[in-house]
Each structure stands twice: as C-alpha cells, then as structure tokens.
Simulated assay, not measured.
Amino acid sequence: MPILALIIIGAAAGFLATRIMKVTTDVPTTIAIGIGGALIGGMTLRFVMMLTGWAAGFIGAVLGAMILIWLWRSYFR
C-alpha cells in the first residue's frame, strides 16, 4: 500500500475511530492512531479473513484504531 494512501486511509480511519470511541485528540494524534490502526487492523483482517482490497484495509484500519484507543485508555491513562 503506498505511503500516501496509508496516510489518507489512516487519517480517515483515525477520525472515524476517535468519533466512535468519543475521544478528543488533536490532528497529528488522530492521524497516528489511524495509521497505527491501519497497520494493525489491515494485517489482522488480511491474515484472518483473507480479504484484500481497499475496503478491507479501511475496515481493518478503523478496527485497529479502535483497538489502539482502547489499549491507550486501559493501560496508559
């Protein structure tokens, strides 16, 4: 996945995940959460469900970002 696409998908996924989880963060943190979620969730979905394409990457990015937010809330606050 090209870097620019990862940043765009990560930013959108981070924004969506922070709104779903009701977390208020600044823009760089939202993008970082989304990119981290894209890496975690995209890999997980591709390995577990054998899905490919942009839709699986976006869904995985949102789920991964939500997992990162949950971990951050649970263990680092």
Rank of each mutant, 00 (worst) to 15 (best):
I67W: 08
V27D: 07
S74C: 12
F15R: 08
L68I: 15
M50V: 10
F15E: 00
T52S: 14
R46F: 07
T30G: 00
G64Q: 04
R77G: 01
A5H: 14
L51Q: 12
L63M: 14
A32H: 00
M49K: 14
A13W: 03
L16Y: 11
I40Y: 06
V62Q: 10
A56L: 12
I8D: 04
V62A: 11
I35K: 07
I3S: 13
T24C: 06
L63H: 10
I7T: 08
I8S: 08
L16E: 04
Y75G: 05
W72T: 10
I9R: 14
R19V: 05
I67R: 08
W72I: 10
T52F: 13
V62R: 12
A61F: 02
T44I: 13
W72V: 09
A56K: 12
A65E: 00
V27F: 15
A17I: 06
M21I: 07
M43D: 13
T44W: 08
M49V: 11
W70E: 09
G14L: 00
L45A: 05
I33T: 03
T24E: 08
R77K: 07
R77V: 02
A38L: 15
D26R: 01
G60P: 01
A5G: 13
T30C: 00
I8F: 14
L45S: 05
A56N: 09
I20L: 12
A11D: 03
G42E: 02
T44C: 08
L68P: 09
I9N: 05
V62I: 15
V62Y: 10
A65R: 06
A56D: 03
L39S: 10
M66G: 04
F47D: 10
T44H: 07
V23T: 00
I3C: 12
M49A: 12
V48S: 10
T52L: 13
T25L: 15
P28G: 03
